[in-house]
Amino acid sequence: MEYGISTSCFYPELTENSVLNLAEHGIKTIELFLNTYRETKPDFSKKMKRYLTEYQMKAISVHPFTSGYESMLFFSEYPGRFEDGLEHYRQLYFDFMHEIGAKILVLHGCIDHISMEKNRYYERFAKMRDFCKREGIILAQENVAPFKSHSVSFIRDMKTYLHGEVEFVLDIKQAVRAGEDPFEMMEVMGENIVHTHISDHTKEKDCLPIGEGDFDFAKYFKKLQKYSFSGAAVIELYRSNFGQIEQLYRAYRQLELLF
């Protein structure tokens, strides 16, 4: 198991500046949260590769800035848009991921209020997963509060319907926001968890630096090991949820004590 920090913690700071900040603080494992089209171009991917090589860093995953479009691209009634959506994602992200060596592409999926029968969702995901797999990319479904993937029951049914042919990103804060128990979500995802977004929380706040809430991370990581988790636990916070950048690095040092 590895641990690191997502560049999303610095938003709206430019992604390249976020990577350099992480590098300067000795962070070796990161998630790249891309924020605009120019960051999917060859010049940018080459720059990211240069930074990663120079500072001996590893980008585990890529979080697409187009997550909000996934309902329209992949989960509408229009079949041609689905096919074009696959090609759109291939052009945007696959070459970038191959250049920097990232394997996991994070998927939010379909927003909750759009009407779509669950099994159709799962079938669409399976086609997307196969498309990504052929390109050497792991498409991983994240549990996200405003999306269909927010609930334990949806994730359980997804895993069952797809006969375990699915990968998941477990996000602690998103489980809390959806009123779900992160440990129950972990139990349902089980051995299919390939990545996790971590943050602390209290009863009043659901997205805090590690050590500023009361979540039991020792228990969390112990249970992850039960499922033979070998991915990365990446701190993912919103910039508005901490005051000073040093809080982010204190959170990282808390992780060092747990590993």
Rank of each mutant, 00 (worst) to 15 (best):
Y3H: 07
G4M: 15
I5W: 00
S6A: 12
E16C: 05
V19S: 03
V19M: 15
L20A: 02
G26D: 14
T29H: 10
I30N: 01
F33W: 11
N35W: 09
N35L: 12
E39N: 07
T40W: 03
M48W: 00
M48F: 00
R50N: 14
Y55W: 10
V62L: 04
V62Y: 00
V62T: 04
V62D: 05
P64C: 08
M72T: 11
F74V: 06
S76T: 10
G80R: 09
G80W: 09
G85D: 13
L92Y: 01
F96S: 00
E99D: 11
A102W: 01
A102Q: 13
V106K: 01
V106R: 00
L107H: 04
C110F: 00
C110D: 08
I111V: 08
H113N: 14
S115H: 13
E117I: 05
N119H: 11
Y121F: 10
Y122K: 09
E123N: 13
R124I: 10
F125M: 15
A126D: 14
G136W: 05
I138M: 07
A140T: 14
E142F: 00
K148G: 02
H150V: 06
V152M: 10
S153R: 15
F154W: 11
D157G: 05
L162S: 04
V166F: 01
V169K: 05
A175N: 10
G179T: 12
V194N: 05
I198L: 05
K205Q: 12
C207D: 15
C207M: 15
G211T: 08
D214F: 03
K223S: 03
Y227R: 03
S228D: 15
F229H: 01
A232Y: 02
L237S: 02
Y238P: 09
S240N: 13
N241C: 14
I245G: 02
E246M: 08
A251K: 04
Y252I: 06
L257C: 06
